[in-house]
């Protein structure tokens, strides 16, 4: 048996099972860590985070893989895709995280070769802010419109009885 990765759900049982599996994998990962290419090390710079291992590593690997596009799929993330290239990328992510590189370092590492397209969620900077802020602006506009209607409501708006009469009238008019 060679478990490659396990996605963690916080269910206690799952934690135990996966924790066990992850410890088994722990050994080989340490060995792989040493295999980072010198050119890669230069590109990556100094690790910005703490080295991860065990369950933490498995969880974080899946989280970061979920932020990256599987290069050979259509819109699926590296975490979701069963395809070989995605699996290879997942192992690479795992190795980088195990060596202490941060999420952002891992993402930019892949970005230098794959381009911005590899990020499944646009980095909120520069022009990309449009996609993050425009919906919020729209929501704010909508809230303002609703608020105007609500504020415009007269204080002596129809009470329950008046409303019942009104409803009756509408029903009659609609003939239903």
């Amino acid at each position: 048996m060679r478990p490659v990765i396990g996605a963690a759900g916080p269910l206690a049982t799952a934690l135990l099972a996966i924790g066990f599996v992850a410890t088994l994998v722990g050994g080989p990962i340490m060995a792989l860590q040493a295999e980072l290419d010198p050119a890669e090390l230069e590109l990556l710079g100094a690790p910005a985070g703490a080295p991860l291992s065990g369950l933490e590593l498995v969880t974080k690997t899946n989280e970061v893989a979920g932020l990256m596009r599987c290069p050979v799929c259509q819109g699926l993330s590296v975490a979701d895709s069963p395809m070989d290239p995605a699996q290879a990328m997942k192992r690479k992510i795992e190795r980088l995280l195990a060596a202490g590189y941060s999420e952002e370092q891992v993402l930019s590492f892949f970005e230098t070769s794959y381009g911005e397209f590899i990020r499944l969620s646009p980095k909120p900077e520069g022009f990309n802010l449009v996609v993050w802020l425009l919906p919020l602006a729209m929501l704010a506009l909508g809230i303002a419109l609703v608020a105007r209607r609500v504020r415009a409501a007269p204080q002596d708006a129809p009470s329950g009885e008046e409303l019942a009469a009104y409803r009756e009238r509408v029903r009659r008019e609609l003939g239903s």
Partner: peptide, 24 residues
């Protein structure tokens, strides 16, 4: 709608392909 069409906008404006996917 914005998320679905943004890749087309971004490519027109920045000239770079951008993904807007599940995490967004």
């Amino acid at each position: 709608l914005v998320g679905t069409l943004f890749p087309i906008v971004a490519e027109a404006v920045k000239g770079v392909k951008v993904s807007v996917g599940e995490p967004y």
